[in-house]
Design a protein around this nucleic acid. Sequence first.
DNA 1: TTGTACGCGTTATCAA
DNA 2: TTGATAACGCGTACAA
Lengths: 331, 331
Amino acid sequence: MQKNTIYDIAKKANVSASTVSRVINNKPNVKKTTKAHVLKILAECHYVPDETARGLVMQSSKMIGLLIADIRTTHHTDAIYYIERELAKNGYCCLILNTGTDEKEQTQYIKMLSQRKVDAAILIGSIYQTAAIKKAVQIYLSTTPTIILNGYLDAPNIYGLIADEENGVRNCVRLLAEKNRRYLAFIVDRYTPSNLLKLKGFESALAQYLGGARPVIVKTDESRRSAYEATLTLMKEHPEVDGIIYAEDILAVVGIRALTDMKIAIPERVAVVGINNSLHAENSIPTLTSLDNMLYDLSLTAVRNLMDVLRGQYVNKKMMICSEIVEREST
Amino acid sequence: MQKNTIYDIAKKANVSASTVSRVINNKPNVKKTTKAHVLKILAECHYVPDETARGLVMQSSKMIGLLIADIRTTHHTDAIYYIERELAKNGYCCLILNTGTDEKEQTQYIKMLSQRKVDAAILIGSIYQTAAIKKAVQIYLSTTPTIILNGYLDAPNIYGLIADEENGVRNCVRLLAEKNRRYLAFIVDRYTPSNLLKLKGFESALAQYLGGARPVIVKTDESRRSAYEATLTLMKEHPEVDGIIYAEDILAVVGIRALTDMKIAIPERVAVVGINNSLHAENSIPTLTSLDNMLYDLSLTAVRNLMDVLRGQYVNKKMMICSEIVEREST
DNA sequence: TTGTACGCGTTATCAA
DNA sequence: TTGATAACGCGTACAA
């Protein structure tokens, strides 16, 4: 594009740069006719203001940094989609960074956010609930409003927004108990803060609803095959199991396949529950009962809260959004 | 963070701002001792340069704009992941925007890219191969290197990078013909430029390998259920069909379920082929033969080409990357 | 080897 | 109602 600054426009319109600026920003005290004239030239030249320069003087980049371990995990992709769209409505752009799971790298990415002068940051996933992140934020983003999605850290500028998965899982156990299940297992792939809460809910609910039945907890590694194997092994070693909760829908879907291959009837012989209420749950055969952790509400609230903070309004530091069970064929 | 400019650092180090700048950018002609001293203060203050200001003077934002219709389509998410990681290696950040499919909105987003002064743009998906986009790019990004992933537009600053899906589909037909399939159908959900090429390949291959068998082409709408219904109807109306190619793996997976529900043996009675070689293909039962359009290579090449263009090197305007069939149980 | 002065494109203050 | 001028934080000729 041919260089196109407010000075170029000013020259063509025979006014000063400040008048052009006033027109662009719709400020008062501009004569109607000059405004119309400038507006016309602006349109003719397809003038677009330089947000970089604007940001420099306004001390606001109108950009929000989004940190995520790996954007390919579908659950997080959805969150990013909701967040990006909502931020766009408010005139903000998203700087999206895949940080991986290494703390050193994550710290580097937080530094990048400060370098890019983002107006705020959203860390997506409970994995950011660590001491390393807290320290990095204190050093590099000490005055930048920061939200952790499904996690919390205690710092003046950090806001936590968490899905109440602990109670959610408790309710899953209660549901299974009501369906006369007595021997429940929980299959988990990673010990994230979020998953640890799910396990906590699982164990306490067993005590409450199933008279302290011994919890069977299986830890798989992160490949999907592994959830398949884990399910096979589980049913061999604990044939009494009549209900399985998986830490995520994807694991459950793979588990359902394993059970089907073993000719185990779902839900007659074994009931299955997943978490996330994702598309996987709707598409599996049989369809999967799943704990909806309200990702959409979580995302929307994150943005709303952030906008409020940026407007200087008071916002609660640690909010929780209730989960809900969506019942389908697998229970 | 307490304000922290090169001037603040300069004061603390008893040197001028330009010396600090020289140290930061590792320029020559700085006395070793002063350099060490400045470096120490820099570290103590956790100084981070302001990329915004830097961008203003260097006329380079070190940001690349990524346009995508909807980041939630898994195939594109993968592309974004590869691209983001590769760009990060080169010191670039990604501005990711969901444009939707409306041309007016898409134009607005292109305008935003120019406003943010991105150094280059990557448009992900053949849907950007439209006259409206071409015009918008010419107006707002006329000097910004722009790559279309899986598409092409003829303009001085636009580079096309396309998967050879036309030939890929031709090879799929040949494979099915070699497996003695005679009556092939193609199920497609949207007439994107990419899908139109697949159809073209399908029809020409029928002429070549199957003596001009009448092509059965079914257009579904974009919901997944619809692919299920379409498959049922297809098999009722054309019971002779013994091979189906779906425009995308997801459609094929849903189709496989429909066939299974109809007790149609795969691949004995009907062979099935998908496109994208995504995780869906690996996870379906039976596993799905799929055309790999080399998304990873495409993404990597896009970034490499872009970096070359930014370095002022010559880059071919329209490149093609060959597809490959990955055979699995469904054929 | 180091410092001064200017410009990048914009907004804001103040004077005209 | 308008225009000149000074920031914003940085890089870089040019001068010292």
